[in-house]
Design a binder for these strands. Structure first.
Lengths: 192, 192
DNA sequence: CACCAAACTTACTTACTGGTAAGTATAGCA
DNA sequence: TGCTATACTTACCAGTAAGTAAGTTTGGTG
């Protein structure tokens, strides 16, 4: 037994990977425990029900998002690193086999989710949309990027595009995601 | 027993709905059989393995796509009904609870799919992309629609956007899909 | 009427699912 | 040294998954 248990953290790491590679119903507690070399019940010790694991995962995502964007949301700054960071992150995750973003994973298995998980997911999505909406709004004002229509729908559109492309890339090849990101860039007039 | 067995057809109908509402690993043979009032083994009689069901579903989608687009692919014509048809279809499917398009469903459960199903899926995606690419190319030539960049990446981008938005709409509400379709329209300069 | 094949049902198997109850090892503390 | 909370393991449970083997019903055909 480790002095400070890192098993919980390892469970979260593995669960996050499994969630994004196989979807929420696509992995079992055994998939986690066997990979860590512990028993099934050890995972249940930290997360009694699978929905507890879901809530913890979503909570983590929200924290990471807030941490990474807090400074921008508070004080502004250049928007290009924000947008390019989103593209790079999506691309890297996909190449690491994590082709299903949490939105997609939980959307597919939505009918099996308890109400609290659904609500947390909606909140996380809200925060993500708000962040990108503000990035687009500020970016347009600062003339760093251009686009058609209002920032809100454009933000939705970009997030949806990346989510869909990430999934399609698994079936059709990773070039697809590069092409789509290129298309988004050109429509934001930030061709490199 | 019906003279001409329509059980197979009913199985396909139900399976298609379940695939698009819960994903491929999200439904079981029991979900199909109980709904039709037959036994589990009856489904296995028509589709021995679940991958046979997957292949049949994909084959059906390909046929439907080809049937609906054959005329346009052969002789051209106005492109607006093609594009608007895609939007209307996506919107309707989502409202009927089928928030997961086949690409998304099979992408999430990709790791469990046998090689032949993966290849059929890739082929179906290819045909879909080719169709929309041609629609965009012809539409631009005929000055029915405008867009940034090449038709290929734009087609990918639109399909990815619709797939992602359809999934996100389930979590965030159906308005999201309307907003996204509105955004796509305005970027094609076909605002109504 | 006899037969045959299609379309099932009955009854089963093996494997895995999330989940639980009870026992055990260990680290730190009074 | 003994106690206690943490972090597990062992050993199970009921439910469900896909899949199968063998028997049964039925419509159509010779």
């Amino acid at each position: 037994m480790a002095r400070i248990s890192d098993t919980r953290e390892q469970i979260m790491d593995r669960a996050a990977h499994l969630l994004m590679s196989r979807g929420f119903n696509g992995f079992s507690y055994a998939d986690i425990s066997s990979h860590l070399g512990v028993k099934n019940a050890a995972v249940h010790y930290h997360f009694p029900a699978k929905s507890d694991l879901a809530l913890a995962l979503i909570d983590d995502y929200r924290k990471i998002l807030r941490k990474n964007t807090a400074e921008f949301m508070a004080y502004g700054g250049s928007t290009l690193p924000q947008v390019e960071g989103l593209f790079a992150f999506t691309s890297k995750q996909c190449q690491l086999g994590r082709c299903i973003c949490p939105f997609g994973a939980f959307s597919v298995d939505y009918t099996d989710l308890p109400e609290d998980v659904r609500q947390e997911m909606a909140r996380f999505m809200d925060e993500t949309i708000n962040w990108l909406t503000q990035v687009l709004e500020v970016g347009r004002k600062q003339q760093e990027l251009e686009f058609t229509g209002k920032p809100g729908p454009k933000a939705l559109s970009i997030l949806a595009t990346l989510q869909g492309a990430r999934q399609m890339a698994r079936i059709h090849g990773f070039d697809l995601l590069d092409d789509v990101i290129g298309q988004i860039r050109s429509e934001l007039n930030i061709d490199t």
